[in-house]
Design a protein around this nucleic acid. Structure first.
Ligand SMILES: [Mn+2]
Ligand SMILES: [Mn+2]
Ligand SMILES: [Zn+2]
Ligand SMILES: [Zn+2]
Lengths: 142, 142
DNA sequence: CCAATATCAAGAACTATTCTAAATTGGTTT
DNA sequence: AAACCAATTTAGAATAGTTCTTGATATTGG
């Protein structure tokens, strides 16, 4: 039961406007797809899924919507190596664990109270505003 | 004075073969460029710099050489967001701090003795084989 | 209702990277 | 040395994800 209080549940009504971004039909459906299966889909994945609700939507519009959602801090864009970007409705600070055997991507959080300088040798005077952490491996090593 | 014992100094003679990879003229010069300025250049940066020594080298060859060096564990490929890949001769485990004001990329290391599970809530049974960590911010906040 | 503005759709353009195929190289065998 | 062979290099074409351009459509507010 993976659940995170910083993400609205899929059943919640999506309002007219979020963080100053007007929720058009397309943006709403794109966002709903992200809330529905939190599996970090690519833009193309979202495009294929959103066609059920909006059969005439274009891939360009999916990109536009994702970009608008990201720029307003409603959605996070996640990059693994050189792969297609993936999108995540969890905007709380978190990293990712990529299970190599199943391909599943798990959100991981920092333990409460830990500080970057507790475990990293940072350059003197470094002020960190953004953290990106990706782990790769397996769950239950065979 | 940033220096790391896991990286050969630029003056060191590069041998005929490293980790089973024959050092051709092109591979040697590409590797030498990476050792010379440890500023995480892109493939194109390397291409431009290596032309001094090998004016007829092609960009495809630079990509080939970098790929060979990476696959033999001699060089690390580093990706930031959707930017061009960058290349780093430091193959010890390390992360990166990207200074937003200067654009400079600093290697950062984990403090000795720290364990991932000390500061992360990992999924049960996760076996981590690879870590990618990027911090962004500024040095000396103005 | 009209005008201004925002958004969307379709396809072209862009760019980093990879692929293809032919030429070159370097080492090995005759 | 000459012929041979495999590995490497080269140039340019192809690819794929993403962004851009442009005209159509929708929404807002007066
Ligand atoms: Mn996918
Ligand atoms: Mn550069
Ligand atoms: Zn996530
Ligand atoms: Zn590095």
């Amino acid at each position: 039961m993976v659940d995170n209080l910083t993400v609205p549940s899929p059943e919640t009504e999506i309002p007219e406007e979020i963080s100053g971004l007007r929720m058009t039909r397309q943006r709403r459906e794109v966002y709903r797809i992200l809330l529905q299966d939190r599996d970090h889909p690519t833009a193309n994945d979202v495009f294929l899924r959103v066609k059920d609700a909006l059969p005439s939507i274009s891939l360009a519009t999916v990109y536009n919507c994702l970009e608008a959602l990201v720029q307003h801090g409603i959605v996070r864009q996640v990059n693994f190596e050189r792969e297609s970007s993936r999108f995540c409705p969890n905007v709380a600070e978190h990293g990712h664990f990529h299970d190599r055997s199943t391909g599943v991507i798990h959100d991981i959080t920092f333990k409460p109270g830990v500080n970057l300088s507790d475990f990293l040798e940072l350059p003197a005077g470094a002020v960190v505003t953004d953290i990106e952490l990706t782990l790769r491996g397996q769950l239950g090593s065979i």
